[in-house]
């Protein structure tokens, strides 16, 4: 950036300054990563070893025993499965619904287009707690209506639906602002050719939306996987909870073996860490699309 600056003294002092700044930020960057690194390190040694020899002692053994035990004793595979059963359908439904609204709003003109978008975006900003009591009652009531109290409440389906309803606002907002930047000519020619609305959506709009859909998928997967409020209040049975809300309880149960708990937390963090490492670009561009439109 500063290569074009012609004044040599300015350039030199700036260089020294930059080096100092870089060192300071580097120190903090390492400090930022340290808690995670330390947790991983500790999860590889038995808690008894730490208790007996102190927290800074050199470990006698380093192995994956805590992981083995955490997976077995904490039933992590069950909770992880629940997490995936909630996250995957919720993301697919959110993106599907979001793209439908974005398509109509940006390609057909109705009076209430902006109002509709405003409405969805506002819904996304509401505090979750504001929605809970009537939602809970409604879930029980709909369940009773179908003769199955656990149709929505205490059921993965109920958690999926509320995630979709909430995240829909953000997805719609991002997808419609993306579509607005794409020239309408492509759509116009399709309509002149007499393509139906359905064909227009599936053959033209969906392929165009591939990049923002990919970014949103990554972002939404992380958000929904990480959330624990909804599962906490909408799931009565612990065995149906996703791993994040299960951790809140496991923390109390396994407080006597903190290294085991550390291993459990690392296992719970792995899916999002992997997503971040592998799909960092999509993750960042998803956030960018939502925050710096225009």
């Amino acid at each position: 950036m500063t290569t074009l600056v012609k004044v040599p003294e300015y350039k030199n002092t700036q260089k020294t300054k930059d080096r100092i700044i870089s060192i300071i930020i580097g120190f903090f960057a390492l400090a930022w990563l340290f808690p995670i690194a330390w947790t991983i390190w500790s999860s590889l040694r038995p808690y008894n070893d730490v208790i007996a020899n102190g927290v800074f002692s050199v470990p006698k053994t380093l192995n994956f025993e805590n992981y083995y035990n955490a997976i077995r004793l904490m039933k992590l595979p069950m909770y992880l499965t629940n997490s995936f059963l909630i996250t995957f359908p919720a993301v697919v439904l959110t993106l599907g619904f979001g793209s439908l609204i974005a398509f109509v709003v940006s390609r057909y003109s109705f009076k209430f287009n902006v109002a509709l978008l405003l409405f969805f975006t506002a819904g996304n900003l509401l505090p979750q707690q504001l929605v809970f009591i009537p939602l809970f009652k409604m879930y029980l009531w709909i369940g009773d209506l179908f003769g199955n109290r656990a149709l929505l409440y205490d059921n993965i389906l109920g958690v999926v639906l509320i995630h979709v309803a909430f995240q829909l606002g953000f997805a719609t907002f991002v997808l419609s602002s993306y579509l607005k930047t794409i020239p309408k000519e492509i759509s116009e020619s399709a309509m002149v050719d007499g393509a139906s609305v359905w064909v227009h959506y599936t053959q033209i709009i969906l392929p165009l939306l591939r990049p923002p859909l990919a970014s949103l998928a990554v972002l939404m997967t992380t958000w929904i996987y990480n959330d624990f409020f909804w599962a906490l209040v909408l799931m009565k049975s612990d065995s149906k909870r996703p791993i994040t809300s299960a951790l809140a309880r496991l923390q109390g149960e396994f407080v006597t073996d903190f290294n085991l708990l550390a291993a459990g937390a690392i296992v719970a963090a792995l899916p999002t860490l992997l997503i971040f490492i592998l799909l960092r670009k999509q993750f960042v561009s998803g956030l960018t699309l939502g925050s710096t439109k225009g």
Binding site: I25, G26, F28, A29, L30, W32, L33, P35, I36, T39, S42, T222, Y225, N226, D227, F228, T244, S245, L247, A248, Q251, F258, L261, A262, G264, A265, A268, A269, T272, L273, I275, F276, R280, F283
Partner: peptide, 22 residues
């Protein structure tokens, strides 16, 4: 640096809580 400061953002606050309790 960019990645380092961003890692905590992708963690669930449940995980963050346990890491700091730890």
């Amino acid at each position: 640096y960019e990645s380092a400061f961003f890692v905590p953002v992708v963690l669930s606050l449940a995980v963050t809580g346990i890491i700091w309790n730890f």
